[in-house]
């Protein structure tokens, strides 16, 4: 069954002289599939993920997006999140004054409430958080620090992965989560993804490096240029790309 279905999506920056960024993008992710998107800087990869997550920076001018058979574009960002979409940001935002653990507790409880479940007990939450953090090699000390404030590039990415594993999404959008990670961290993050992956779930992984795909095996690799997908293949396409660069695709 289709988890995500994007058809002929056109989007522009939502201001009077905003340029068009997505120019007729098509993509279908079935349950259980992992897709990777690669593409040169500035082609609209992050824009795509932000639109899927519900950003109001962009205006959709054409096309449709269905998630679990429902019109995704109708829904607000927090509804999308609570219905299982998670975006690991390319550039995670700093939130001064709010401890990471507090932030995550709010997030998890919002999701539980949305799904008409009881909020998690504080102690139970701490236990869950510590356990997940440990597998990602994140110290308790980091969890007390305000969200992303003063975190190194790699720490931020690991923290995004931690958030993802706590919120256990149905559709994970990873925007260059591998950038800035050292080799060990890359492996732990990849393990994190593989751990939560199941036949009910889907992933869209944006990366510039084939290396990540050594750890997370994608079912499909897409090349995105100029706001749309111009070529789709399997894992071998990533290797090919690594060798030839984007030039071979008319960039």
């Amino acid at each position: 069954m289709d988890l995500l279905n994007i058809e002929n999506l056109h989007a522009r920056v939502d201001n009077p002289d905003g340029q068009e960024i997505l120019k007729g993008l098509n993509l279908t992710i079935k349950k259980g599939e992992i897709h990777a998107i690669m593409g040169p800087n500035g082609t609209g990869k992050s824009t795509l993920t932000k639109i899927l997550a519900g950003s109001d920076e962009y205006e959709i001018t054409q096309g449709s997006v269905n998630y679990n058979g429902e019109d995704l574009l109708e829904k607000e960002a927090h509804e999308r999140a609570n219905e299982g979409i998670f975006l690991a940001f390319q550039y995670p935002v700093e939130i001064p004054g709010i401890a990471t653990s507090t932030f995550l507790r709010h997030a998890l409880n919002a999701k539980l409430r949305h799904n008409e479940k009881e909020e998690i007990d504080n102690l139970e939450f701490i236990k869950l958080l510590r356990q997940k953090a440990k597998t990602l090699k994140i110290s308790d000390e980091m969890l007390k620090r305000p969200v992303n404030v003063g975190f190194s590039g790699g720490e931020k990415k690991r923290m995004e992965t931690l958030q993802m594993s706590i919120l256990d999404p149905h559709l994970g959008l990873l925007d260059e989560t591998d950038s800035g990670l050292d080799i060990d961290a890359l492996r732990t993050v990849a393990e994190g993804v593989n751990y939560i992956h199941s036949k009910e779930k889907g992933f869209l992984i944006i990366t510039h490096y084939q290396r990540l795909l050594d750890y997370i095996k994608p079912d499909f690799v897409h090349i995105m240029v100029g706001g749309k997908i111009i070529k789709t293949g399997d894992y071998k396409l990533a290797i090919e790309l690594e060798e030839k660069g984007y030039q071979a695709y008319g960039v």
């Binding site: 109001d56 960002a77 927090h78 998670f86």
Partner: peptide, 10 residues
């Protein structure tokens, strides 16, 4: 936006 993508309403 960051907070809302984590499920919190405005």
């Amino acid at each position: 936006f960051y907070c809302t993508t984590r499920g919190m309403d405005e």
